[in-house]
Each structure stands twice: as structure tokens, then as C-alpha cells.
Write a protein that binds this DNA or RNA. Structure first.
Lengths: 207, 207
DNA sequence: ACCTGAACACCGTTCAAGT
DNA sequence: ACCTGAACACCGTTCAAGT
């Protein structure tokens, strides 16, 4: 990998994302990222105060691929679109997805997508205070669903056991219905519950 | 701290929980836990295959304080009680709370609480398959809310900025309504949305 | 056979020494 | 003044050497 000059935050973030895509999140160390750029590890500290800040930049970069919703669609379609776009973009880069789940990035792209969510919730008819609360709930759910999806993809027999126990509870005739945690179907079901809750909340406020 | 003999998984987990309560999650290293017990770090490996397994045991121990719901209450009250009990128990031990959020423990206490959740959802009138899906959604939401609450309590100015941006969006007259992410109020609102969604789902299935 | 602790292969970050 | 890389203070875990 040839040395890329000049070193900028964007160049560093892109290199880190490459390392993460190729070798996983545990490989995204200051030393490995520096090796990818063929520079001294300490050179990274001239562009980021610490590793956390560097990963924040990588997380926001991964969200660059998440398109905003069609502005002409109704609020619920837009909300589903934003949630799906963030989920897709994050899972396309499994190396950084866990970091996105752990701390929602608020760089350029995070703010763009967040604003779209808030606007959709306002249009749904929630009060300004409830727009905030509902958005935090949606971000929380999205983060957890992402974290589960990442782990489900990992080789982690312990988690597979967790998934199986969660998916096959001693609750009756569930039997064949095994749904992997973190699956797209599981994600859609939770979002459906939340949207039904938002509709009920909005109806309660207008009615 | 005097040496406790004999060394058992329970004694080790209790010591680790103490370290975490006192010095935070980053202090729960194999070496520090061994120091708390005045034993060789390698002695821990005779009782747990690796650090992850040890933390799983600590997480389940923290949930021991979460009481099960009153069996005579209606399903919704029971569900709220279980969610609140897990949240309280986890936040009472901030050193391990993040680990609980990252991987729902399925030891004795995790299973006990999980079973109570599933039973409540079944009684709500969901199909067995939807009981599973709804429970996974609730666990996901609980995990994310816990993770946010833990971070909100940390000295993390970057996260505080995240919280402020999320809580004061450019969406209109939100203005004074600033709700910290991870607050009890925020948690209650999200749970309310989910319960409304579950009620709607149950009504759709019976009707 | 069991247990120990030295050693391995790493970390993020500091800081003194070089240019 | 800027940059570098050696060094610090750690990790989780392996494994050879002791008892």
C-alpha cells in the first residue's frame, strides 16, 4: 500500500475503514491504521485527538452511503427509508458497524440522517418534545438492532446459543419459528411496533 | 483484601463486580480481578475459559437483584416491571451495565427474567412467533437504553454534545424541552411506544 | 497432575530526543 | 517548530518450567 500524501483526516478515515472492512473491528488499531498508510502511528495524533475521535470519523464516513429519503413520500415511508438506509450502510462495513451502534455518529452524515428522522416525526403530528423522545427511541432501537446483527454475523458460538435460546423460548408452540436475532425480519418487526406506537401517540395528541 | 478460599466462579464473579463498582468497567481486567482476590491472574482461567465468560457471570450476578414481577398483575404491568427491574439492577452496577447491554446474559437470572417477559407477551395475545419477535425487540430496546444511560453518566463531553444535539434538534419549537438520552423519562417513553405497538398487534391478531 | 509466573504479542498514548 | 520513534504502562493469553 503506497504512502498517500498529504495525510488528512479524510485520508486517514478512509484507510481505517479499509482496514476494518478487510480485517474486522479488532484490527482497527492506531498501529495497524498507520501501517496501512505507511506512516508513523503518532502521525495520526496530529489529525485526531485520540482513537475514539478517529473511529467517530470512520463511522460518519460509513454513513455517507446512506441516502436520504424521497422528500415527496409520506412521513412513515420516509422514516422506514432512513432507518433502512442507516442499517444497510452500517452493515456494509461490519468493521465499524459496532462503533456506529455504540455511539451514534454526529458528523455531517449522521446529522443529515438525524434531521430527516426528526422532520418525519414532526410531520407525523407529534409535539416537539415527543419528536425528540421518539427520535431517541428510534436511534436506541436502531443501535441495538445493529449491534445484534453484527454479533450474529460473527463466529461466536456463545452468542449463537443466546440467539437460539431467545428464539426458542419455553412459551408454547413456537417450535419451528426460529428467528435469528439481528435478522432483517426481526428488525422490521420491531420497527413496526414502534411505528404503531408513534401513530397511536400522534392520534392521541390530535384527537 | 484478604485471600478468599476456595476460589470458585461465584467468588471470582463477586470480586469482579466489586472491582467494577469501585473503579469502573475498564478496571475489570483479569490482572486487577486477580489482585482483588490476591491470587495469580492465571488462576482465573481454571474457572472461566476467557475474560468474556467471566464478565458474563458477573453480568448475571448483577441481575440477581432484579425481582420477578407480581404474578397476579396483568401482562402489561408485569412487562413494565420486568423492564424496570432489569434497568435498575444493571444501573446499580455501572461497571458491568455496559456488558449487560452488549450481550444479554443468559445465566440463571437472565433466563428467569426472560421467561417472565415471554409469558407476559404470550398472555397479551401475541402468536408464539410474535412473542419471540416482540421479546427480541424489547431486549434490543432495553440494551440500547442501558448503554445510553451508562454513557450519559460517564464523563464524556463528546457524548454530552451528542445528547444535546439529539435533544435540541432544528425541528421547530422544541426549545426548552431538553431530555437527556438515557434518562428514566426517555426510557419510559420508548417503552410506552413499544407497548402501544404490542397492544395494536395483539388486537389485530384477535380481531 | 497440577499450578505458577515468566514471556509473548500486542495495545493507546506520552514524551524526550532528534532534525 | 515540527516530527519521530523509543519508551511507558498496561492488556489477554500461552506455555514452559517448576512442584
Amino acid at each position: 500500500m503506497p504512502r498517500q500524501r498529504p495525510l488528512t483526516p479524510a485520508v486517514i478515515a478512509a484507510a481505517a475503514l479499509r482496514v476494518g472492512d478487510r480485517e474486522g473491528d479488532r484490527a482497527m488499531t492506531m498501529r495497524r491504521i498507520a501501517a496501512e498508510l505507511d506512516c508513523d502511528p503518532m502521525a495520526l495524533y496530529r489529525h485526531f485527538p485520540d482513537r475514539q475521535a478517529l473511529l467517530d470519523a470512520v463511522a460518519d464516513l460509513a454513513l455517507a452511503d446512506a441516502p436520504g429519503p424521497d422528500p415527496e413520500a409520506d412521513w412513515e415511508t420516509r422514516l422506514r427509508a432512513v432507518m433502512a438506509a442507516i442499517r444497510s450502510a452500517a452493515l456494509a462495513h461490519p468493521g465499524i458497524a459496532a462503533h456506529i451502534a455504540a455511539r451514534p455518529p454526529l458528523g455531517e452524515h449522521g446529522r443529515r440522517l438525524g434531521t430527516a428522522m426528526l422532520a418525519a416525526l414532526a410531520e407525523a403530528g407529534l409535539s416537539p418534545a415527543d419528536v425528540v423522545r421518539a427520535s431517541q427511541t428510534l436511534v436506541a432501537y436502531l443501535a441495538a438492532a445493529l449491534a445484534m446483527a453484527v454479533r450474529a454475523g460473527e463466529r461466536d458460538d456463545r452468542w449463537r446459543h443466546v440467539a437460539e435460546t431467545l428464539a426458542a423460548p419455553p412459551v408454547g408452540a413456537a417450535g419451528e419459528e426460529l428467528f435469528a436475532t439481528g435478522s432483517a425480519e426481526q428488525f422490521a418487526y420491531g420497527l413496526r411496533l414502534l411505528l404503531a406506537g408513534i401513530r397511536a401517540e400522534a392520534a392521541g395528541q390530535t384527537g
